[in-house]
Design a protein around this nucleic acid. Structure first.
Lengths: 122, 122
DNA sequence: ATTATTGTATTAATAAAGTAATACAATAAT
DNA sequence: ATTATTGTATTACTTTATTAATACAATAAT
């Protein structure tokens, strides 16, 4: 795993994002056991508490769960994961639309701007 | 003006957003003089420095400008304002697309989800 | 020229966020 | 039963962000 951290944002947030992305991308498979907090912390060269914070945040989202003394695991409930992804997507969309409306943009404006952006990206 | 503030976010950010929204919505007209820092602060019942911070942040965006001792004004450069709006929109879009892609969603997925959201909103 | 009004700079105080050190608790492994 | 490994709680430290008090500087108004 890459653990490329900078000081632009809190460490624990960067870690959370990295792991979350890897889970969603399927790098970590459902049911797979994660390394221990201490091992992950060593790997990423951060304080164990920092890693702990990242992981417990991640847990709130339901992507991972803990079994008291045996460790942390990626949720094996695939439908839950799908559901979660959809919920995150919905939140993103609603925030986005709220911001765009605050700029006085109509639905048609938004459609047009998205297509334009995609066209420019190629 | 409404000045409804809560403690969910820093005061100066909430103020910044309120004023920005009003400018973009045309409540404040181009060229219009804003009340003085002290007056605005009294109106919103905040410390003058807090208002000052909100306003100087707003200034960085180019929506308002200062004339040393006569006060602050809404930019009368309408094309600049349009330009700024477009830039803000572009930033929002790029952030949004980045986040959606991180969720593994394709362009077609995004189109579909937006239309769905709009349909549900009515 | 003086005064009142404007924005700004400086500094301090307070609050919140982030990171770290250490001790605890539970249980799987032996 | 003992030990090693796991996550967690508690506490303290440090840094950053936010708010506030106060003094300064420039100029429009008189």
């Amino acid at each position: 795993m890459a653990w490329t951290l900078d000081d632009s944002r809190p460490i624990y947030l960067q870690i959370e994002d990295l792991i979350k992305t890897n889970i969603i991308a399927g790098v970590y498979q459902p049911g797979q056991k994660l390394p221990s907090v201490r091992d992950l912390a060593a790997e990423a060269a951060v304080n164990p508490n920092t890693m702990q914070k990242a992981l417990s945040e991640l847990e709130r989202s339901g992507l991972v769960y803990t079994q008291r003394t045996s460790g942390r695991f990626i949720t094996e409930d695939v439908s839950k994961m799908t559901e979660l992804k959809e919920q995150l997507a919905r939140e993103q969309i609603q925030l986005f639309l709220k911001n765009m409306e605050q700029l006085g943009l109509s639905r048609e404006d938004i459609r047009r701007l998205l297509e334009k952006e995609w066209k420019e990206e190629s």
